[in-house]
Amino acid sequence: MGGAGTFVVARWRPVQQHPVAGFLLPCQGDFMAASAQKVSRYTPGEWRNLRLGLLFVSPWVVGFVVFTIYPLLASLYYSLTRYDLLRPPVFLGIKNYTTLFFDDPHFWNVMGNTIYYVGVSVPLGVGSAFIIANMLNSRVVARTFFRGIIYIPSIVPAVASAMVWDFLMNVQWGAINGLLRFFGLPVIPFLSNPAWSKPSLILVAVWANGAAVVIFLASLQDVPRALYEAATVDGANIWHRFRNVTIPITSPIILFNLIMGLIVAFQEFTIPWLLTQGGPMNSTEFYLVHLYRNAFAYLRMGKASALAWILLFIIVVFTILVFRSSARWVYYGGDK
């Protein structure tokens, strides 16, 4: 070994072989080697800059460690304990996890409810947002007005939305059922029948999907006009242009909305809690509602922490699956 410089260069050399491109990147390699050499020879001024830099980022680092890393690790520990806040935690190993999977009378029902909700609300939400965005991207009358109207639900506080939907969908005095009754039609027990409760909550979720519409709108406005013109010249009709130009070009945004939708749907809490509190007959007991109930109604912090970690695992798995599938249907221009 011929000193630090030699060591650093030798260490960095494998990086020069690009794992994907499969060819050497001499410039990149030289730059990295040079940078790495510098690390070992900081001048006093650079050390000062480093200290200052660390000092300036320290509020964020401290906040991240105290408010994110510590609670994360603490919840991992608590998930292995029996902890009710009132007494010190008692270590149980993986018992909370095995109890959830094999002995909990609610867990699989909750999983079923959540998968149903995610499986229907996310595709429906993304699909409807995409269609609405396309409609709003065309030359319709009062386009600005409609754009505003579509976005408003996503900025209405969840509690206010819940109150409005409760009023609309109540089986006794709800406005929708009032209309049905007026026309002599049978009423719909939106929130009070187990068969209707989940579709009703999905309806509320899709209604409040204005943010996805706005993101789609922005992406639609970035689709090069030239592509549509070229497609038109080649004889493409409106469906062909939509199918072969609009969807591929906006597919990265569809992926983004799909993943964000998945993450949000798995963690749905506010609207179900306010509208149905998990009922009727546990039909809207979604994952986070169940987690909340375990943590704050039954004070089973250990079990609730285990539920949280299982949820994290589920979301990560679903996200990976969607990312993996994206290789088949997401178009990244020349960078695929």
């Binding site: 109150m163 409760d166 109540n170 089986v171 006794q172 005095w173 027990p189 929130l191 009070s192 029948n193 509208l275 149905t276 009922g279 009727p280």
Partner: peptide, 12 residues
């Protein structure tokens, strides 16, 4: 009626 009952109780 269970649905009627749930509806009645769900009124604010």
């Amino acid at each position: 009626g269970p649905d009627n009952f749930a509806g009645l109780r769900s009124v604010e």
